[in-house]
Design a protein around this nucleic acid. Structure first.
Lengths: 347, 347
DNA sequence: GTTCTTGTTGCTCATCTGTCTCCCACGTCC
DNA sequence: GGACGTGGGAGACAGATGAGCAACAAGAAC
């Protein structure tokens, strides 16, 4: 246990050497020529005294804090933030960095966002991770550019900052593919009404995948609603009310899928025997707990957090040029998570 | 937007005064005697240059970082962590502090926990918040004591550190009370099997509340299972299979309540007409999204995070003596959140 | 009316925080 | 008199802090 009051000076005195020597030994300075005996003694005494460097003083001198700022939207309300934080924390720690976290809101004003970044800057973080809660376009605080920064789950409207985003299209293709693979030929899509990239890309991928499989993608039924349970319920009721209703349903997210489950139950449709459903998000609390378990597409929040951190640190350490990566956002795949809500359609 | 390269020295030169004077003005040093004109000029120039103090240098000199360490279990998997973080972040920011977050696991080794605290200590945080994911007893890393610390959602086995915990008993009483108030006389409890304070206290409160209402608390049906959806389902099937089954069910948590919903559906019991259910936790994703919405008891995670932070800062600033508060944990109430799963029993 | 004392105002100097890093010093052996 | 082996000194990082120093004014002593 390190005693906070012990400094390099105390170690130096106890070991009978200079502060310089202790610093040289403990930092393994390449050009320092110090005898093995002295080295051993310094290390032993340092250990014995429970010495730990004062990272503040270190940072002040070296101009490196080893701290990364993470400004994240809606930490409390979505589990997604937690996964990004976890991915970032683990990646950071593996390389000796720590995270300073600041919560913000999706609806925060530009001034407030700027103040958040400012706080991080005053603390001299080495880099900043800017995470939004769902994939969308954002305009960034102007001061973000003053240290290396990476966007997580969004791209900048100006578009010249490195970003990681999920492969919406690939995920949607996987979801529809699972339905197709099970033998479904009448597949519907319950979509979101928000104008975000996911809405458009998933819809487009939905139609394309059907068309490529020889079905009429353009004619496939699509119903849009607010992306919550209630919206999913309403959209499902509508889509299942048509004649010749779909036997497979791709839902914009797990919450809407949950609504679709209820609609199915009310209509006496059993899942997956009468109706197969695939969701999106893999919100454990929902997807794993519905009955039957929901087959869904996972968003790579952990991976995006880790990827962003990894590359941010590379940039901080001069191993990478973020400007080059900023040309196109990096796209991480959204794997299908198979549970029990998909089966072959009834004959 | 503060230019990171501007220091107090630049402001001093631009204003034609000494560094000391700038420092005195900007920090409103009480004993400094500086003319109003000079003050105004310094402030104006500082603003104009976009000067912001380097918090590292400040911290080095003042021995105050204005940073609080938060080690939290399972950031990614439970939304509870998010609410604690949010409460802590908002309370901290309101007082000019920031949070350094470290994730740990509920099953982390003592060494790893100690290393986490050590990391925080090396960075010279002013205080530490130690948050667990559910109310339980923990043994703490030995080095936690070296700075002011507060436990969130748990009490130390040694028991001499300030802690905030939820009012399990009050919450359970409120839950059972809601059922009683609606007119139920046959009330059952679906409990957890883990040996944690919540399990015992909720059970005890369940029986006591019934007894105090003139019912036979000791005879009331209780079934225990793993505290997940499946466990809730199984326990509910058992409890509802008896003769004269309960018309009101208090569930250990929302996940178990979700299982009870399914059991009820399978038995043809409509909620709340045939069966009233109350949960615990208020996990939005579940409680608000079940149909009908689940009446449940909210755990004060946000409040605990805020309370802990508030008092930790008081201690850091010498306004409070944590040792005094350590005698007994502070208990925060668990309010009932009414939705639509409780109604009067059928005659 | 001059000089001395005492006080006040306005600001600066020197030093400190803990660590790193460039450059130099000392002794010894060829 | 270099080369080598060992190690130390003195800033510098950016700001905080308390003692101290001019400059000037008012009051007191003569």
């Amino acid at each position: 246990m390190s005693n906070k009051n012990i400094g390099i000076k105390d170690v130096a005195v106890a070991a009978g050497v200079s502060v310089t020597t202790v610093s040289h030994v403990l930092n393994d300075v390449s050009y320092a020529r110090i005898s093995p005996e002295t080295r051993d003694k310094v290390r032993a005494i340092s250990e014995q005294l429970g010495y730990g460097p004062n990272r503040l003083a270190q940072a002040l001198r070296t101009q490196r804090t080893g701290m990364l700022g993470l400004v994240s939207e809606e930490i409390a309300t979505t589990p997604h933030a937690g996964r990004i934080i976890l991915g970032a924390d683990e990646a950071a720690r593996a390389r000796g960095y720590n995270l300073m976290i600041i919560n913000t809101s999706g609806s925060a004003s530009p001034e407030s966002r700027q103040a958040d970044v400012e706080t991080l800057l005053e603390r001299r973080v080495d880099g900043i991770l800017y995470a939004t809660m769902y994939h969308r376009n954002v305009e960034l605080p102007a001061n973000l550019g003053s240290v290396p920064s990476v966007l997580v789950d969004s791209v900048a409207t100006g578009g010249n900052i490195t970003a990681v985003i999920p492969d919406e299209e690939g995920g949607a293709r996987a979801a529809v593919g699972a339905l197709l693979e099970a033998g479904h030929t009448r597949v519907g899509f319950i979509n979101n009404t928000d104008d975000v990239p996911a809405t458009r890309q998933r819809l487009q991928a939905f139609r394309a995948t059907l068309t490529e499989a020889g079905l009429d993608g353009d004619a496939a039924p699509v119903e849009s609603e607010i992306s919550e349970v209630q919206g999913g319920y309403e959209a499902a009721r509508r889509i299942l009310a048509g004649e010749d209703p779909p036997t497979g349903l791709f839902c914009y997210n797990d919450r809407m899928a949950m609504g679709a489950y209820r609609a199915a139950a009310e209509l006496g449709l059993s899942i997956p025997a009468d109706l197969s459903i695939v969701g999106f998000d893999d919100q454990e609390l929902i997807a794993a707990n519905l009955y039957p378990g929901l087959t869904t597409v996972a968003l790579p929040h952990y991976e995006m957090g880790a990827w962003a951190t990894e590359h941010l640190i590379d940039a901080v350490e001069g191993k990478t040029d973020l400007a080059l990566m900023a040309l196109h956002p990096t796209i991480l795949s959204c794997p299908l998570v198979r549970r029990d809500s998909v089966a072959a359609p009834r004959q």
